Simulated scan of single mutants.
Amino acid sequence: MKIADLITWFEEWANPTWCESWDNCGWQVEPGVLQAEARVLVCLTPTLAVMKEAIAVKANLIFAHHPLIFNPPKSLCTGEAMGDMVKLAFTQNIGIYSAHTNFDQVNDGTADVLAQILNLHAVSPIVPTQSGLGYGRVGNLEPSLTLQALLTQIQSQLQPPKLIFSPAANLEQQIARVAVLGGSGAGFISAALKTKAQAYLTADCKFHQFQESRDQGLILIDAGHYATERPACDRLVQKFKSLNLNWVELSQKDEDFRQFLL
């Protein structure tokens, strides 16, 4: 399958026009690869390490969740990460494409994959946007789990370096309804509350957001940005493989950007 055909297939599923106004979905760098047979390296974040990996495996497309470019750069300079990425993209003939907030909304996107991992039933978006799609997912645990069992499942499935949850939570409390949203989902806490969820799995939550959630009866669970979005990248690889591409793999050089002392 040619890169142009792969992008057409993807955009029929996750239209880049659905992305938020602050976002930058779609082509980040297109150095003239549209008619090449697709050799795709899927990653969460396009970095120099991922670019060097793409060169090593002879990929011609980096398909990333996070955009390389959020705001128009004022300059592109050698020795700076973005400048070096763009230079290598053109000299090595490797395209960089991003699917961000459009990918967040779709079935088998970032939130939907989390709901599947937790085996949630009767799933619906936290914030609907169009015809059953939207941001986040909320659903029921059947059977219900204790909070301790839910946390253990999240730790086992997502393997975050740290798992943070609301203060003074009763670990023996039965949890029957859970909301999930991969990446920075603290802005959706009020929406999660409206779904009657007892627990909300997301990332990048601040100190007082844990307090506010606790005070409103919602158990906030922060598993980290990387751990909550990386599974959807793996799912994307599986979907691409079903298209019988020439070559597609998940990046082994993706980074969490955080380290924790043990």
Rank of each mutant, 00 (worst) to 15 (best):
F63A: 10
A59D: 05
N107K: 15
T146N: 07
V106K: 08
M82S: 04
C43I: 05
Q148D: 13
N24H: 11
L147W: 07
D104P: 03
N24L: 05
G26S: 06
S131W: 06
V50L: 06
K74I: 01
C19T: 01
I164N: 04
G109W: 02
N24G: 05
L151W: 01
K52M: 10
V86N: 05
I154N: 03
H121R: 14
C43D: 12
N107W: 08
F103C: 10
G136W: 02
Q157A: 12
P67G: 06
H66C: 04
V33E: 06
R137D: 00
I94C: 06
G26V: 00
V113C: 12
A122S: 12
C77R: 14
G134L: 10
Q148F: 04
A54S: 01
I94F: 09
V113I: 15
Q155F: 00
E37D: 15
G32L: 04
V123K: 01
Q116E: 13
L151H: 10
V42N: 09
L48C: 02
N107L: 14
C43R: 03
A56V: 00
A149E: 15
Q28R: 02
K74H: 08
W22R: 08
N71W: 08
N102D: 07
P128L: 14
L151T: 12
L88P: 08
Q105H: 02
I69M: 03
I154C: 10
N24C: 03
I62Q: 13
K87V: 01
C25L: 05
A56K: 09
S124M: 13
A149F: 02
T101L: 07
E142N: 14
Q159V: 14
P143G: 05
A89L: 02
V50P: 00
G136N: 02
N119V: 04
W22H: 13
G95H: 01
G32Q: 07
D104A: 06
L145K: 08
L68I: 13
H65S: 07
F70G: 02
G139V: 07
C19F: 00
K162Q: 11
S124Q: 15
P72D: 09
R137E: 06
V86G: 00
A59E: 04
Q153S: 12
H100N: 12
L150T: 12
W27L: 12
T152I: 08
A64N: 06
L158I: 04
V123L: 03
E53P: 05
T152Q: 15
L150F: 11
A122Y: 09
